[in-house]
Structure formats: structure tokens, C-alpha cells
């Protein structure tokens, strides 16, 4: 994680601090905006709907500004690598498939998507043999199917495969 490990930095701390502070500021501004619409006064019977959110938004914006200043004021030696290119690649190599996985849930159901996701992960990052991959990924989905659909009767999203098997 330190500069000493020698990787090329993808982002430095100053960038990360600035972006996060800016996001905070934006969120705070949205909150203030909607609270102002709802009314943020203090009437005789107590605060209105927007009263608390309004001041929460104000505090978020103020602290975001202070954090932004602090971030920009980071000295050269403290402005070390936030994440190195190699690390970022690793993180993204999981984050992107996960996002695809979440996107697939709506299309092909959570069980098939999960089996594919586990399989991909095991094969790609773990380099397991195909039969192990198949056993774990399909077994995992089957166990969850039994627990949720069969025992606890909690319906999870299902897709064409389950429809084909008449399981939904």
C-alpha cells in the first residue's frame, strides 16, 4: 500500500480526497434543495418535515468543504498513492463481474446468475478444474434454492431456466 511497494499509482490521495469531498458536497446540496421545498421552519408545534434534513444537509456541505481544504493541503510526501494500477486492476476484476452479475439477476434469475458468477470467479481467479467449478457453483445455487424457495418460501428473482423446469 505504500510507495515503497513500487507500483504505479492510479490515483493519489489528493485526487481521492477531492472527489469524495465533492460527492459529499453534492449530496448535501441535494438534501438542502429538497428540504427547502418541503419547508424547514420551526412552527409552534415543532420542526417541519424539512427541518432536520435541511440542517443535516448544511452540516454535510460545510464539513465537505473543510475536508476538501484538508485534502488539497496535503503535502507532497503525504500525497502518496491511493491505489496502484495493479491493485485497481484486481479490485475492478471483481467489481465489474459483480456489477454484471447484479445486472443479470433481473434477466436470468438469481440462481443461474449466481452459478455463473461463482463459476467465473473460481475458474478465472482460482484456476480450478472444470469439474470442481461446476460442482461448487451449481451446488451453491441448489442449496440456496432449497433454503429460500423450498424451506422458507421467500421468492427470489427467477428466470427462463426455472420457468422451463416449472419451478416458479
Amino acid at each position: 500500500m505504500t510507495e515503497g511497494s513500487g507500483g504505479k499509482p492510479a490515483f493519489r490521495y489528493r485526487v481521492a480526497e477531492t472527489v469524495v469531498a465533492a460527492v459529499f458536497f453534492a449530496l448535501g446540496a441535494i438534501v438542502i434543495f429538497d428540504s427547502a421545498r418541503l419547508g424547514f421552519g420551526w412552527r409552534e408545534d415543532g420542526p417541519q418535515t424539512g427541518y432536520f434534513p435541511f440542517y443535516i444537509g448544511v452540516i454535510i456541505c460545510v464539513s465537505a468543504l473543510i475536508n476538501l481544504m484538508a485534502g488539497l493541503a496535503e503535502t507532497k510526501e503525504k500525497n502518496r498513492s491511493f491505489v496502484e494500477v495493479e491493485q485497481l486492476k484486481l479490485v475492478l476484476s471483481v467489481l465489474v463481474p459483480t456489477a454484471v452479475y447484479v445486472g443479470l439477476i433481473g434477466w436470468i434469475g438469481i440462481y443461474v446468475a449466481s452459478a455463473l458468477f461463482v463459476a467465473l470467479f473460481m475458474r478465472w481467479l482460482g484456476k480450478y478444474t472444470w469439474w470442481k467449478v461446476a460442482a461448487v457453483s451449481i451446488g451453491n445455487s441448489l442449496v440456496f434454492f432449497l433454503i429460500f424457495e423450498f424451506w422458507f418460501r421467500i421468492p427470489l428473482p427467477k428466470g427462463p431456466l426455472e420457468a422451463l423446469l416449472g419451478l416458479n
Binding site: 452479475y101 439477476i105 482460482g126
Partner: peptide, 16 residues
């Protein structure tokens, strides 16, 4: 590489 995707799946089901 086996447990991490399973944890992700558990998390996704939990959130859903």
C-alpha cells in the same frame, strides 16, 4: 476464490 463469490451471492440475496 471460492468463498468470496459465495459471500457476494449471500450479500446480494440479503440485499434483495
Amino acid at each position: 476464490s471460492v468463498i468470496a463469490p459465495i459471500i457476494m451471492v449471500i450479500c446480494a440475496i440479503g440485499a434483495y
